[in-house]
Simulated scan of single mutants.
Amino acid sequence: LHDIRKRLGDRVSISLLTNGIGLMRKSLNKLHFLEELDEVVFRLDAGSQKVFNAINRPQVGVSYSSLVNFIKRLRDVVEELCLEVTLLRSLGISNTSSWELRRLIETVSSIAPSRVKLTTPIWRLPNGRKPLTRGEIMEIYRIMADILGWKRLDFDRPRSRGRISLQTHDMRTALLSILARRPSTEDELLIMFDINPEELQNTLCDLMNEGLIVQEGEAYRLRRCEIEDSS
């Protein structure tokens, strides 16, 4: 980052979009590189541990409250600390029900970010998840604006994402990269990547046989290295 900033100066704005989970594993004194960024945007899509687990599917042991407290601690490190909130609904758990939305707004308010961007996906989602209409988004926008102030809110309805086309030799690397960030089901991986379902299943089986990933229920995740005490 220092070299990039030195070469380009203030001609470009450098931002980081993150779910924060990877950064949580580092101590604050190893996060000073964040000071060189113009903006750090944390994804925060839930107001409770239950909805956080359902939407973000973090690895086992990741606490929602710990993540929120970590983001708050970074306010002294990051000049422009922002949040991106993706609003969606499903037949089961949603982050837009009255109770959950109230919890989410309370959490956002307690973090006191420089800016909050509201968004909703428009591509096909697994598990019955659905995007909100523009009218529904704007209603939530007005509710949040009354609490946070409209100058700190932004609304972005993203364009539909195309799937990523992979060559066979790239597939293993891409899958491991995705599963290192978050557990995913076959349906979710098929949405993200333009690959044949049978080819995906074969690659996942190969990675499991090699001990690189494990399956928990319907989701696959990167295998965590465990050090056994041999004493």
Rank of each mutant, 00 (worst) to 15 (best):
K6E: 10
G149T: 08
N202C: 02
L222I: 13
E39T: 08
R172Y: 12
L148A: 01
L44N: 00
N127D: 15
Q49I: 04
G22T: 05
P131K: 07
T173S: 12
E226K: 15
N95S: 09
I213T: 04
G20Y: 01
T18H: 07
V77I: 12
A112V: 10
I147G: 06
L17T: 14
R224I: 10
V214P: 03
L88K: 01
A219F: 04
H32S: 10
L67E: 02
I14V: 11
K26S: 14
V85A: 03
T107A: 08
L148K: 05
L91D: 15
L91W: 15
L118H: 01
E80P: 01
T173D: 13
R124F: 11
E199P: 00
D38I: 01
R157W: 00
S94E: 06
L179C: 14
C82A: 15
L91I: 15
E84Q: 11
G149F: 06
S65F: 09
T173C: 06
A174D: 04
K117Y: 03
K130N: 04
G61T: 05
S48M: 04
I227Q: 06
V62D: 11
A112R: 15
S27E: 15
K117S: 12
R57H: 09
N202K: 12
R224S: 10
E84H: 03
Q59V: 04
L91C: 12
K50E: 14
S15T: 15
N69V: 08
N127W: 14
L34K: 05
T119E: 00
T96H: 03
F42R: 00
E136G: 03
M138P: 01
A145F: 00
R172T: 13
H32A: 10
E136R: 05
E39L: 11
N202H: 07
V41M: 05
N56T: 04
V116L: 07
S66N: 15
D229V: 13
A174E: 04
I137N: 02
L17Q: 14
I227F: 12
K50T: 09
R134T: 09
E136T: 06
V78N: 00
D194P: 09
L212S: 04
L204T: 01
C225F: 10
S97G: 10
D10K: 13
D38L: 02
E228C: 11
I147S: 10
D146Y: 03
N56I: 02
T133Q: 06
R159E: 13
E218I: 11
S165D: 14
S13I: 10
P58S: 05
G217H: 05
V12M: 07
I147Y: 08
T86H: 01
R102V: 03
W123Q: 11
R75C: 05
D206K: 15
